[in-house]
């Protein structure tokens, strides 16, 4: 139900997050995040264009990731959120806390 794929672009790790990021799938995301951080990645773009569903458990994973990346001198940007996922990000104020972009290209170019 959660699909994750990664690609490195200009010093960013672009993480494609597809499907659902919710109570059931957030632990798998957290595990991957720990692995990426262990590999030394600090700057992330989460590509949410294929994410259909995001609940507060998913938001918790994202904010934890942003805190960890920030304390290591990095950051997390969000790109491509649509529909309910965009509504959830806006309602929860994550559009203020994190940099958000319409597309991954915009996010990478803004660095």
């Amino acid at each position: 139900m959660l699909e994750l794929g990664t690609e490195q672009r200009q010093g960013w790790l672009v993480v494609g997050v597809g499907g659902r990021l919710d109570t059931a799938t957030a632990p798998a995301f957290d595990e991957k995040r720990t692995a990426w951080m262990g590999e030394g990645h600090r700057r992330y773009v989460l590509d949410l264009s294929k994410l259909d569903y995001l609940s507060s458990a998913g938001l918790r994973s994202i904010i934890s990731m942003a805190k960890q990346a920030g304390s290591d001198g990095g950051q997390v940007s969000l790109a491509g959120a649509q529909g309910l996922v965009k509504d959830v990000i806006d309602l929860s104020g994550f559009n203020v806390l994190l940099s958000t972009f319409d597309s991954v290209d915009d996010a990478v170019a803004a660095a």
Partner: peptide, 15 residues
């Protein structure tokens, strides 16, 4: 979190 203005301040739960 919806009232926080920066990542460091944002609590992890409560949403």
């Amino acid at each position: 979190a919806h009232e926080a203005t920066c990542v460091d301040e944002a609590p992890i739960g409560g949403l």
